[in-house]
Simulated scan of single mutants.
Amino acid sequence: MPQYTTDALILRTYRLGESDRIVVFLTRDRGKKRGVAKHARQSRRRFGGALEPMTCGRVAYVEHESRELVFLHYVEPIRSPLLAADGSVLGYAEYFAELIDEWAQDADPNETLFRLGWSVVDSMIEGVPIEPLARYFEYWLLRLQGVYQPDPRVSEGARAFLTAARELSPLGLRDVTVSGQALAELEAAHRALIRMHLEKDLHSVRVLRDMRR
């Protein structure tokens, strides 16, 4: 029963019985994992505040050859969207986490996707405007999956933003000027691509839509 310690992004959790949780997390070096966090709803020492979507942390877990679920020993948070000054970004943390969860493959290492997620969390904490950051994340996620298709109908402003996104880190978005109209065009184009490839609408998209009302 090998034990592993690595950096990870927390993606989502589910209740398991009265006190446990199933945790889905993306590791830096071993792909996506699903693990049982025993007494997670009671133990603040091992898991308190560390299981929120897009929490970046150090995890320790044990794998059993005959079991699909690993045993999650602890999560030590390093960075979290909870540290962002603007609490409204938390809905976007769930959106980013759901997108990563949908595309990341079980036990298939994808360090580039992991680094994209980690850098987006850093940017949320540093106060990068959330709408440009969301369009940046969608753009790079779709590119990394090899399914990005430019929409010829978007405006020059939208195309200029994508050109900047190809060259900049997420933190660099603070210096990019882009109109709300251009961001709305890209949101519609990206969401259409995501819906086409996943063949469904994401739950977090509906949550974000409700937040804007």
Rank of each mutant, 00 (worst) to 15 (best):
L162F: 04
A184T: 14
S155F: 09
L16T: 11
G146V: 10
G35C: 07
L193P: 01
G127N: 10
L113I: 12
Y4D: 07
R21W: 03
I130H: 00
V59Y: 06
S43N: 12
D86N: 02
F114P: 06
A160L: 09
R174I: 12
P152I: 09
A192D: 10
V59P: 01
A184G: 12
L69W: 09
D20N: 11
E111Y: 05
D101M: 06
Y139L: 03
F114S: 06
L202K: 08
H190Q: 03
A165R: 03
R135Y: 02
R159T: 11
E131A: 08
P2H: 09
L173M: 00
G35W: 03
E126C: 07
R153D: 10
D122L: 14
G172N: 05
S155Q: 05
R46I: 08
L142S: 10
E185W: 06
V23S: 01
S43I: 09
L202W: 10
F47P: 03
E138T: 01
E18H: 04
A84K: 01
L198Q: 06
E156T: 13
E52R: 03
L208P: 05
E167F: 08
G31K: 01
G180H: 13
A165I: 07
A164I: 05
A104G: 06
V24F: 15
G57C: 04
E111T: 12
L16E: 11
S155E: 04
A182Y: 05
A97H: 02
V23M: 01
A84N: 00
P152H: 08
L133I: 02
K33F: 15
A60E: 12
R28F: 04
A134W: 00
T112V: 15
A192P: 05
P132R: 02
V62S: 13
L72I: 11
I78Y: 06
R115P: 06
E131H: 12
L26P: 10
R21Q: 14
V120T: 12
V154M: 07
